[in-house]
Simulated scan of single mutants.
Amino acid sequence: MLALPLVMGAARGAIAAPDGFFSPYMAQIQEGLPAGFVMRLPAEVLLGGPASFAPEEMTVRILSSQAPPDLTVGLFTCTSGPMPCLVGSFSADRQGDPDAEAAYRRHVAAAAPLTLSGNIKGYLLEGGGDQPSPFSSLMWKQDSMIYTASFLASERQNLLRMAVSMANSPPIRPRARSAAAQ
């Protein structure tokens, strides 16, 4: 059973900017946004499941592609090593992108809708347990984008809270490019 009243109550109120945790990466995020893209990030990075990762212990990697266009902000517990250290990610793909639309349809088919904001509905695919992936992911459409927030299954409640925060936060727009850079 989903604890949505708690999630929704946590996000109501003033619209907040992305967590200060992202401040050192904001220019890189804005520069990595493909043409016509916007990105949303949570007002607060919430981590506290059994793994109990502290945001200040995280490494952020911005992965941007122009073909197909997308942007992913990944949170890691290491910079390199033999063991995977991805804790979670936030990504944006353009609506109409075939791969993103297929993933979105899988989410819609497998999950009941969750209200993230007004008429914005998200769909949660749970990971862990008997599932092949240790990650849960939540997808929704907004701003002509398909957003995905994906975190370790142990961070389920925090994933829900961060997705609500993202849907209610102002979008990050690309940095204005100078005429010389074009």
Rank of each mutant, 00 (worst) to 15 (best):
D97F: 09
G129S: 09
S137N: 15
T72Y: 03
S136E: 02
R106A: 12
C85W: 01
L71Q: 02
G81I: 10
Q66K: 14
A67M: 11
D99N: 15
F76M: 13
T59L: 12
P132G: 03
V87L: 13
G129L: 05
L75P: 01
R106Y: 06
A92S: 15
L75C: 10
I62Q: 03
R61Y: 05
L71W: 01
M58N: 04
A100Y: 01
A111C: 06
F135R: 00
L63Y: 13
A54E: 14
A51T: 09
K121Q: 15
R61H: 09
E126A: 10
P68Q: 07
D99S: 13
F135L: 05
F53A: 09
A92P: 00
G129V: 05
G96M: 04
P134C: 04
S80M: 10
Y123I: 01
L124G: 02
L138N: 01
L125I: 15
P82A: 09
M83V: 13
S89N: 15
L116H: 04
A51H: 11
H107W: 07
N119D: 15
L71R: 03
S64F: 05
R106P: 01
P69H: 05
R61C: 05
C78M: 10
D99E: 13
R61D: 04
F135V: 03
T115K: 12
E57D: 14
S65R: 13
A109W: 05
R105S: 09
G74H: 09
E56K: 13
L75H: 02
R105D: 12
G127Y: 00
L63T: 11
S91K: 00
E126G: 05
M83S: 15
G118W: 04
G127A: 07
A112R: 11
A67F: 07
A67S: 14
E101H: 08
A102S: 14
P69F: 01
P68N: 07
G81A: 12
A109H: 11
S80P: 03
A102M: 09
Y104D: 02
S89E: 08
G118L: 06
S117G: 06
A110H: 11
G88N: 01
D130W: 05
D130A: 12
H107C: 10
V60L: 10
F135T: 00
L63W: 12
R94D: 04
R61A: 14
T79Q: 14
A51S: 11
R105K: 11
L86W: 09
H107Y: 08
G118I: 05
A111F: 05
Q95H: 08
F135A: 00
S136M: 02
S80H: 10
T59M: 08
T79N: 10
G128M: 01
N119L: 07
D97L: 06
A110Y: 08
R94K: 15
A102V: 08
E56Q: 15
M83N: 13
F90K: 00
F53N: 02
P69V: 04
G122C: 08
S133T: 15
S65C: 08
V73R: 00
A67V: 11
A110D: 08
L75I: 14
G122D: 05
T59Y: 13
T59R: 14
I62C: 08
G127W: 00
S91N: 01
S65M: 12
S89A: 13
P132T: 03
G88S: 08
E57M: 08
F53Y: 14
D93E: 12
C78Q: 14
F53M: 06
I120L: 03
